[in-house]
Design a protein around this nucleic acid. Structure first.
Lengths: 328, 328
DNA sequence: TTGTATGCGTTATCAT
DNA sequence: ATGATAACGCATACAA
């Protein structure tokens, strides 16, 4: 089954191939009638424009690449929708390359996107070191989302401030032994930990940080360590996934959340809002980040000399039922 | 910044472009030494193969397209990973096109994938009518996943049997007024409802089906109707998302799950397993479905004349804490 | 409004 | 083992 080309359509209609080409791009210079006949013949012949050939010839893709650190992350969808809607207005499509966090396959994503000649690339989450990102930004217009990177365009919620909100909320209710389960030290997401530490110090309290890999199980393990220690915390602040793990552990020990332990999460995932989970948490603004990324790209592409910019969005604390005043 | 082409590399090394081309495909017929020099020069010049041009010239993509009905569906990731791993073994890459269910943008996904000349297309979820799928299957080798479609290759968990498992579980515990919240009648996912109805009849009970759109809120609304009726059910069977809505409603009315109402879900989503949610549910087998889809594709591509096949996977019921014997 | 010539960067075919 | 030349299907001048 051979491919139907523009030549076939042109022959059928009795015009030159170029006329067909023009017609399909609705470029000016084709009479309405010829255009009709062309569209018609194309349909009849089952012609479809060869995007690949068109890309090669025009030497531009009008495509922005979206790299997803892990396809299972809840935040992806809103980022995509925000990005795609805004990008569409600028006449650009979004090409997705999705990875799996545990595999550390980010470089593959980037290469994928460079392969298809994306005009620009958006990183929805990244565990690469800053230096690596700077290098990539050198090869292609890059916007990092959910993480702040010095020297690279980035859009993220102000994690530092979000952590402060969480701690202050707990302190106000009377908590003094507030622990934090953070991502491992080598992770490039450090602002939350810093915010926690700063807020604790500001309140005259001594910070207590435990590191754990991303996810529920490591979160539960960390919580176990904390609760088994000499002075167990009355509250824990950590990412939502870890928070679910903390709840797991409490459940398995017969501890009641929030009366035996208060928890504040970060990310305001879907699960946090479920009755029965009801986790107080700090919000992300995924859709907005996607939109802003598209706008940033549009500006960068118009003016490549533009200096990089790090946008921080305002976090807010969604108060639910996982926090009460300490009982000791 | 001009693109570095094969010609540049060839000139640098002092060979013809074809030799470079061969070298990069590690095709036979290039001495190890020249190959080394070519790779080396390429790196020095910053050459990268132009995938687009390569696709155009070779006229084949070795790409399988994956259409995601909605990027936010939890099941996507495992399907992708299963598919990608298996496809990679066959030398194929996976190209993702993700939609948003409420927008009914599936056709766009399909066109996207046809545009990039995917060798085959996998549909991870679809709301298109069977007839539409048959038409697409005519244009490109198609495998539908999570849904059974007569006349189209498809791989899904046996929804009918899964529904039976759920009902039987409830009946065994003594429930007699078991209601089902199903997807709207026009949705092409009907096996669950059928299974429910059949199982109820087999148990000598009268089925009671309420339709609701996908999601928590519609699920809660449906539950409200059921609970307000003359003979409220003692148990509800529905998809996990809806089940979460049912829980919502119970919570808001001060009803206790499972003592006031038992719930069995379908899909075994992550949320179902959380302590505090603890929802008994019927499993999907996402990763396996992805793998099987890849294998199916491989076979189809080798032998296009192969008849279509509908694979049904065995469901199983994960018993958790959302079901007890009825108290009236 | 429509047509002609040329190029996009690679692979395929057939030589050498 | 390597090279010359023609596709691949379309877009971009520029000419008519």
């Amino acid at each position: 089954m051979k491919r139907v080309t523009m030549d076939d359509v042109a022959r059928e209609v009795g015009v030159s191939r170029m006329t067909v080409s023009y017609a399909f791009r609705d470029a000016p210079g084709v009479s309405a009638e010829t255009k009709m006949r062309i569209i018609d013949a194309a349909k009849r012949l089952g012609y479809r424009r060869d995007v690949i050939a068109s890309l090669l010839a025009s030497n531009r893709t009008n495509t922005v690449g979206l790299s997803l650190l892990d396809l299972s992350f809840e935040i992806n969808a809103e980022i995509l929708y925000g990005l795609r809607d805004a990008a569409k207005r600028d006449g650009r499509r979004v090409f997705i390359s999705a990875g799996e966090m545990e595999r550390r396959d980010e470089p593959e994503r980037l290469e994928d996107l460079l392969d298809v000649r994306a005009d620009a690339v958006v990183l929805a989450g990244s565990l690469l070191p800053d230096a690596a990102l700077l290098k990539y930004a050198d090869r292609v217009p890059l916007v990092v989302v959910t993480r702040r990177v010095q020297g690279v365009d980035s859009i993220a919620v102000d994690d530092h401030k979000g952590a402060c909100l969480a701690v202050e909320h707990l302190v106000e209710l009377g908590h003094r032994r507030i622990a934090h389960i953070s991502s491992p030290a080598w992770y490039p997401y450090t602002a939350r930990r810093d915010g926690y530490v700063d807020a604790m110090k500001a309140a005259g309290l001594s910070p207590r940080v435990l590191e754990a890999e991303f996810g529920q199980t490591p979160g539960a393990a960390a919580a176990a360590l904390l609760l088994d220690s000499a002075e167990p915390p009355t509250a824990i602040f950590c990412q939502d996934q870890a928070a679910l793990g903390v709840r797991d552990l409490c459940a398995s020990r017969g501890l009641h959340v929030p009366h035996d332990l208060s928890i504040v999460g970060f990310d305001d995932t879907h699960a946090a809002s479920l009755p029965g989970i009801d986790l107080t948490s700090v919000t992300q603004q995924a859709r907005l980040m996607g939109e802003l990324a598209a706008h940033r790209i549009e500006r960068k592409l118009r003016n490549p000399a533009l200096p990089t910019e790090q946008t921080l969005l305002e976090p807010s604390l969604i108060v639910r039922g996982s926090v009460v005043a300490p009982n000791n």
